[in-house]
């Protein structure tokens, strides 16, 4: 019989390992030019931050009264100098360290906490869900900028407190996304099918719920990185985040604003960096969403 013949062949044929979900995502992502350009910019920014001491032509902290507000293109100061005569190029390169750190860290922390909370609420359902989600809703009463400023103001100025307050700001939206996708997934037939074939509650959450829920949450979280960077810059601008003289793009924007009429191009540079970074994260997250959707 044909089936029997195939059976005997099966024992000799080595079984190929399946491509796997992430391999497929990577393949689809690599075919998206916009996402790849955005990824290249992000990688370049990260490398710039890591190797800042080797890349920066000068000291980002040391100023010189003689070179205050030199325009772009001054010899030795390719991007000019700031209001204290510090080399702008060096400051922008060093600034990537804190700015990226403050953009990514709160989102990662909120991704971990918010997903856990949202998946738990969505999977358990009932009164526990209501209790968690209504508490989360309270945070929606405040605009995110106001919430970040209020929290950091209450906690006191400083880098750690700024990170904590940004994390708290991002937990509610991530929880909400996690809860809504989990609620949808929980009622799908394949979860029922897994239960019907003897999967335990924990296995269902780990395999079927996480597998289907993490990518939409992750995509949403990557789109928050740019928001986080802008909010972090805002906090620094208000003096609640990074303290001078540390180079950070938001803070640089703040200190240079006094010079905006004297040297507008130099004053705009930190804003340009924030813009490039946040748009790269946004475009990358768009590409990721498309690549992760296996159903299309």
């Amino acid at each position: 019989m044909a089936v029997g013949a195939m059976d005997s062949r099966a024992t000799i044929t080595p079984i190929q390992v399946s491509e796997g979900y992430w391999r497929g995502v990577a393949r689809r992502l690599s075919r998206d030019p916009v996402a790849m350009v955005a990824l290249a910019i992000i990688v370049a920014l990260v490398l710039m931050a890591v190797f800042a001491p080797y890349l920066a032509p000068g000291d980002p902290i040391k100023g010189s009264m003689l070179r205050r507000l030199k325009p772009i293109g001054t010899p030795g100061y390719p991007l000019g100098a700031d209001e204290l005569g510090r080399d702008m190029l060096s400051r922008l390169i060093y600034g990537a360290r804190l700015s990226l750190f403050m953009g990514v860290t709160p989102v990662l922390a909120a991704f971990a906490l918010g997903s856990a909370l949202g998946i738990f609420a969505g999977y358990v359902g009932g009164a526990i869900n209501t209790a968690i989600m209504r508490t989360i809703d309270v945070f929606y009463a405040f605009p995110s900028v106001l919430l970040a400023v209020a929290l950091s103001g209450a906690l006191g100025a400083g880098l750690t407190n700024a990170l904590v307050s940004l994390t708290i700001v991002f937990i509610p939206p991530i929880t909400r996304v996690a809860e809504s996708v989990t609620t949808q997934v929980r009622n799908r037939d394949y979860v029922e099918a897994a239960r019907a074939s003897g999967a335990h509650g924990f296995t269902i959450v780990r395999v079927h719920v996480l597998g289907n829920v993490l990518s939409p949450i992750f995509v949403y979280a990557t789109s928050l990185i740019s928001v986080s960077m802008i909010l972090a810059s805002g906090l620094s601008f208000l003096g609640l985040g990074v303290r001078p003289p540390e180079p950070e793009w938001g803070l640089m924007l703040n200190t240079l604003r006094t010079a905006i009429y004297v040297s507008p191009l130099v004053a705009a540079l930190p804003g340009v960096m924030i813009f490039i970074t946040s748009i790269s994260f946004n475009l990358f997250s768009d590409g990721l969403r498309t690549a992760m959707d296996v159903r299309t």
């Binding site: 491509e19 037939d189 394949y190 099918a193 019907a196 074939s197 395999v207 289907n212």
Partner: peptide, 18 residues
Amino acid sequence: SMIFQEPLLALDPVYTVG
């Protein structure tokens, strides 16, 4: 064990059949 009505919904979309 059980077979469901709509196999597209009863199979998990993010994992291969294998």
